[in-house]
Structures are given as structure tokens and as C-alpha cells.
Amino acid sequence: MNPALEVSGLRKSYGGVPAVDGVSFRVDEGTIVGLLGPNGAGKTTTVSIICGLLPSEGGAVRIAGAALSGDTDPAKGRLGLVPQELALYEELPADDNLRFFGALQCLDGARLASRIDDVLRLTGLSDRRRDRVKTYSGGMKRRLNLAAGLLHDPDVLLLDEPTTGVDPQSRNAIFESLEALRDAGKAILYTTHYMEEAERLCDRIVIVDHGRVVADGTAEELGALLPRARVPELDAEARAAIDLLAARGIAVPALDGGKPRLEEVFLHLTGHALRDER
């Protein structure tokens, strides 16, 4: 597969403290790559450098093989950003929000109208397109936030924790949208704290900590990083009991099945110490 996004040796520090310290990974066409890490691991800084919000102190970002140069580089149009914050004008209807963000991406006329229809349909918001965003639920706002990042039909989509604070239905709708986009050949970099999201969606997972990549692979490949000896084989009855406990929010990490959960891998790689935001 062709790499749609290549990040190599990115570096960035704040006041002498490295926030991103030689991060490298790639996202191929038609794949979703999860970017995981504890608070302050350098995920958001990495995403900000990729889309040109922050200058890097070293390394390179290539979109379809070409480096971005300057604010007005047309190649920026191949990137779609869905920020962690709700980047919407609450006083305006969804239509007006999308029209404005589309115009910033140099869309206009029939092309803009058609793209607005497409992204609203994809995110299930067509019926509420004329309502002010402030009347939307949290999940609807998140979906519109995603729609705004898709307007210009970018080849690479950067999602920074796009499901924060949404209900399961909206989360599922977002997942379905993203899976449809992957199937359409889009390259998606998905930053999240939620391990189960990464397990469900991502074809590959990159775990960063202290500004460095500490693991990069499929869920199975990452699972192999755990010491297997402590994971016992369980019969169907034991497995059902563990699932029942898990459904009630009680995790039994050492006994929860033959396949290690991503969260275990994550904690194994990044440790159990609490992290504060930088």
C-alpha cells in the first residue's frame, strides 16, 4: 500500500523539555492508525506539527511523498483535521458552519453544496442542517465536528480524540463513518485514550510515551509484547464469568482471556504512574 502520510524523526521541545523526540510512523491509504499515549506523551503536538499548526525542530512530514511548505501550500488541502475541541460556531446552523469551513478550503458553488450534502449524510445530520449548533446534543456536535474536517474530501484525516464525551450511539455512528472512509481509501490517524476504540477501529497502533514511539504494530503484534506466561488458558465457563464481571465494570486483567487486551499492553509499555498534562 502507498503511504499517504509519513512522519519521520519529528522533534519539538518546550522550554528545553522534549515533547516530541524523534517520532516516526506512517499511515497507508485505506488504513486507520491509532496514535495512543498517556497525557502529555506528545500526541497532540505531533498532530499539530503534521497539519502545520506548530513548527517542528527537526524531522519531516510528507503527504503522498511531498513535504508541506508554508501556510498556503495547496497540499494542505489533502489533510483534514478534526480537532479535539469542538471547532464550531454554536450560534450558526450546521449549513453555515460547513459553508464557511468549505470556503476556507477554497470550495465554492455547486461543489461546496454537494460536499455539504455528502458529509451531512455521512454523519447523519441532514435533517438538522438548518438548526443552530447550540441546539445539538454533544454527540451531534462531535459528528458535525467530523463533518467539517471531511468537507474538502481530504486524503489524510487527522482525528484528535474525536469521541470525547459522546453517547454510545453517536460513537458508533462516528465509527461507522470512519470505517466507510477507510473503505473509500482514506488514510486516517486516530488519536485516542480509549483502548477499546483503538482495538475496534485501528489497523495499526502507534503508542507514544515521553515523546517517543514505544510500540508500532497491529493489535496482535502489540499483544505479543506482553509476557505470555501469566495469561492462563480459560474454559468457556470461566470466560463467561469474566465477561460478566467486565460488563459490570470489573476488570480482571490477569484472567480475562487468552488474548491480552490492548489496555494491558498499554500499561505494560507506559507504566502505571499517574501523568499530568504538560
Binding site: 497539519c51 499548526l53 498556503t72 494542505k76 488541502g77 483535521l81 480537532p83 471547532a87 467539517a148 474536517g149
Partner: peptide, 15 residues
């Protein structure tokens, strides 16, 4: 301070 700024700056828009 918010995400709109990121969206503006991520667009191919000159300062």
C-alpha cells in the same frame, strides 16, 4: 484558544 483556530490554520490560508 479553541479548535476553530486550529481549523483556520490547518486550511491553506495565508496569514
Amino acid at each position: 484558544q479553541g479548535g476553530i483556530w486550529k481549523r483556520l490554520r490547518a486550511a491553506p490560508l495565508s496569514r
